[in-house]
Simulated assay, not measured.
Amino acid sequence: MQVAALLTALVYTGFLAVGAVLIRIDIDEHRLPDRIVLPSAAALLALIALHAAATHDGVALVRAVLGGLALGAFYLALRAVDPEGMGGGDVKLAALVGVFLAWHGWPALVAGAAAAFVAGAAWALALLAARRIERQARIPFGPWIILGAWAGLLAV
Rank of each mutant, 00 (worst) to 15 (best):
M1K: 08
Q2P: 15
V3D: 08
A4L: 05
A5R: 11
A5Q: 15
L7Y: 07
A9W: 03
L10Q: 13
V11T: 09
V11H: 00
Y12C: 11
Y12P: 05
G14N: 04
F15W: 05
V18Q: 02
V18R: 02
A20I: 15
A20H: 08
V21F: 00
V21P: 04
L22K: 07
R24S: 11
D26M: 07
I27E: 08
E29I: 00
E29D: 14
E29P: 03
E29L: 12
H30N: 14
R31K: 15
R31M: 09
D34T: 11
R35M: 10
R35V: 14
I36T: 08
L38C: 04
L38Q: 13
S40F: 00
A42K: 05
A42I: 12
A42S: 08
L44E: 13
A46Q: 08
L47C: 11
L47W: 06
L47S: 02
L47I: 12
L47M: 13
L47V: 13
I48L: 15
L50C: 13
A52V: 06
A52D: 05
T55H: 09
H56F: 00
H56M: 03
D57H: 01
A60L: 10
V62N: 01
R63Q: 13
G68Q: 09
G68K: 04
L71V: 10
G72T: 08
A77V: 14
A77K: 00
R79L: 00
R79Y: 00
A80C: 05
P83M: 02
P83S: 06
E84S: 10
G88W: 00
G89E: 05
D90R: 01
K92S: 10
L96S: 07
L96Q: 06
V97N: 03
G98E: 10
G98K: 09
L101T: 15
G105F: 01
W106Y: 09
P107N: 11
A108W: 01
L109G: 13
A111Y: 10
A111D: 11
A114F: 09
V118K: 10
A122Y: 02
A124E: 02
L125Q: 04
A126E: 02
L128A: 11
A129C: 07
A129S: 13
R131T: 11
R131V: 05
R131M: 08
R132V: 06
I133L: 09
E134M: 04
R135F: 02
Q136M: 04
Q136Y: 00
R138S: 14
I139T: 12
P140Y: 02
P140G: 11
P140Q: 10
F141W: 06
I146V: 12
I146D: 02
W150M: 07
G152E: 11
G152M: 10
L153M: 15
L153N: 14
L154F: 08
